[in-house]
Amino acid sequence: MFRRAREDRAFREAQQAGQALLLRLQATQPWPNFPEPTPQAPAAGEAVVPDFLPPELRVPARQEVAGVMMRWLQPLVVDGEVRTCPECGMYRDWIVFCMRDDSIWLRCRAGHETKEPGLDAVWFNRNSGPVDRFHPTLEEGVRHLGH
Rank of each mutant, 00 (worst) to 15 (best):
M1E: 14
R3E: 11
A5W: 05
R6D: 06
E7M: 06
D8P: 00
Q15G: 03
Q19L: 15
L21G: 11
T28R: 14
Q29D: 14
P30N: 08
W31N: 12
F34W: 14
P35G: 09
E36F: 11
E36H: 12
P37L: 13
P39V: 07
G45H: 04
V49E: 14
F52P: 00
F52S: 07
F52R: 11
L53E: 07
V59K: 08
P60T: 01
A66Q: 10
V68I: 12
M70R: 04
M70P: 00
M70K: 02
W72V: 05
E81Y: 10
V82A: 13
V82F: 04
C85H: 01
C85P: 00
C85W: 02
E87W: 07
C88T: 02
M90V: 03
Y91M: 05
I95C: 01
I95K: 01
C98P: 00
R100I: 09
S103I: 03
S103L: 05
L106G: 01
R107E: 02
R107V: 00
A110M: 11
A110G: 10
H112W: 04
E113Y: 05
E113A: 07
T114F: 08
T114W: 12
K115A: 10
A121L: 00
R126K: 10
R126D: 06
R126Y: 07
N127Y: 12
P130M: 09
P130S: 14
D132P: 03
R133I: 11
L138Y: 09
E140Q: 15
G141T: 11
V142T: 05
V142E: 12
H147L: 10
